[in-house]
Every structure is written in structure tokens, then in C-alpha cells.
Amino acid sequence: MTSNAISEIWYTRCPVPTPVGLAAQLGYLEENFRKDGVTLKSIIDSPDRDIRQSHFNHTLDWSFRHGGNVPPIRARSEGRKTRLIGITWTDEFQAIITLPETGIKTTKDLKGRRFGIARRPEGIVDFMRATALKGLISALSLEGLALDDVEIVDIALSDSVLSTQEGPSLFGLKRRQAYGEEVAALIRGDVDAIYVKGTAGINVANLIGAVQVAEFGFNPDPKIRINSGSPRVLTVDELLADERPDLVARLLESIFKASTWAEEHPEETRRFVAREAGATEEQVLASNGPDIHKHLGLGLQPELVEAIGHYKDFLRDFGFLAADFDIADWVDRRHIDAFDRRAAA
């Protein structure tokens, strides 16, 4: 019997394709933790702003998170005692788009033009800005262009990311549609091009009849594809990792069960991912491709860890981190290695 007989654990995941999200929808998470008398409580669905903020800064003890990597990397750089216990790589649509009247048809046409990037108020790390900036750099590099070949135009946002989950302007939905301010700036003619990604990016590009300048979410070079959502990280707080490894084992058991289920149920998986993302199945197919059911696994292979390190260095170089840190010190292999040993036995 453990000396830390806790009764509840906080968890959160981004509204994107993750095996944690799939395990939650399938009931595997709740079922497995119930065996130890533990109730799961969702951070991102809490009505309390202070609780929801932990989705971005990982402040709650006895918690785990699976999703975009900018907030957990930033939290680690601020000294949060978290552990990186797994990585999932699910490629997704990433593109630079414009409107027909700009005359921009290729990435080379961006030279000297205005590229709009949203800037949120200080506080929570501006992960959407980091994502757009990395996407722009990736696109430019494919044509031998550099960041100073374009004019970056800030699209100032007055609301924090927490505000996008509140208020009557949601019209009954869980969160506000992404890229609204960027698209508005594009339509007003304040900027000439913007970055979009995922099902939300597919949706707005379709809505405005955009011209696709470049798409690189499935580029063969992983360093081009690397961004906030490629790959995504599974992190747990230090207390959970060190004092209740049995519960981390329950988490991994649920995730790998969901991953196996996904490989055997491609159409149902697409349906579950669409529900998770607040998208249509058609948008998921367009954004993530026909084989998404094969890319909801979890691992700590060297190439996955290297990808997170590459993106961490990008965030450091562009001022998104509080301080630098060693990725190797963040990675905690004990849990996934123990799981692999049990599976082999």
C-alpha cells in the first residue's frame, strides 16, 4: 500500500489528435484509474480560470497533460517540476495562405510582403505566435529565404487565451474558432499572408476561398514539419512520477490500449478525433491524412526526443522561454521502459 493514497488526479489534453484524448473518449482512462479508487478531473473543462490555467503552465500537483509542446516546454523553462514521459507524432496540415487579390502564388512571392502574426497579451506563453513564426520560417527555408525577407506585422489581440473559452461570443461552443483575427486582418488588407494549421486551418482557408502559398505539414524533412503540434508531449508532475509510478503505469496502459484500438478501427478513430477537435470527419481526413489511426502511439525514441530538443532551441532563440534547459534532464524513461518490460513478459 502506497503512503500517498490520493483520491483524484487532474488531467488535460489539447483538442487535437492524441491517444490520451482517444483513451478518455473510449472510457479507458476512467476505467483504469477507478481500479485504484482514483477519480479523474479535467483541467481544461473546469469553470475555474485558476484551474484551467494549469493547462498552460502545469501548476497543479498530481496531474498529467498531453498536447501541444510550447506550454510544457515553457513551464519547464520556468522551473516547473515536470517529467516528459512520452511523445506522439501525428502530422497535420500546415500552410501559408493568402487571398487571390494579393497576387501571391508561391513562397518566393512573399519577399517584401507583409506577414501577419497574432500577438496575445503578456501572461501565458504565446504558443500560437510561436507556432506561426516557426511555420513561416519553415516555409521560407524551403525556397532559400530568411525571416528578414518578409515584413512581420503584429496582429494585436486584447484577450488572453483563457478568454477564448468564456463568454456569449462562443455561441454555446466550448471555445472560439482559431484564426479569426488573422483572417480579419487578411480580409481588411492589413497583411498579405498568414499561417494556419490543423482542422481549424483547413476550415478557415476553405471559408474565405484562400490561395495556398505553401503546405509543409507532410514535408519529408522532419525539421520542416516540427512545430507546436508536431510532435506532442505527455508530461506528468514530479509528485505523480516519483511517488505514484503505479498510477503512471495505469495511464500508459490506457494510452497503449487506445493506440491499439485505433489501429484496428480507422474510421471510428477519425470520428473520435473529429469529436475531440470540434471538427468534421472530412476536415480531419484533409488535415491529418487517411492514416491518422496509425499515428496515435507513444514513445521516447531518440528521433522524437531530438525533435522536441530542436523545437525547444527554436523557442529559446526567439525569446519564448524563461531560461534554457537540457531536454535529457526532462526526459523520464522509467515508466515507458517498465511498461515495455511488462508487455514483453
Score class of each variant (00 low, 15 high):
N32R: 14
C14P: 00
T18Y: 07
E31P: 01
T18P: 02
V16D: 03
K35F: 00
P19T: 14
R13L: 09
L26H: 06
D36S: 15
L22D: 05
D36T: 03
P17H: 09
N32T: 05
P15Q: 12
Q25E: 15
F33S: 10
L22K: 03
W10C: 01
A24Y: 12
E30R: 10
G27R: 09
C14N: 11
G37E: 10
C14Y: 07
V16I: 11
P17W: 02
P15W: 07
K35R: 14
F33A: 13
K35S: 09
I9V: 10
G27P: 04
R34M: 00
L29C: 06
S7E: 09
R13C: 07
C14M: 07
G27N: 06
N32M: 05
T12Q: 12
Y28I: 03
E8S: 11
V20C: 13
E8R: 08
E30W: 00
R34H: 08
W10P: 00
A23I: 04
R13T: 12
P15F: 06
Q25M: 13
K35V: 10
G37M: 09
P17M: 07
G21W: 01
T12D: 10
S7N: 12
A24N: 10
T12H: 11
L22A: 13
A24K: 11
I9T: 05
G37C: 09
A24E: 11
R34W: 02
I9Y: 02
K35T: 11
P15K: 06
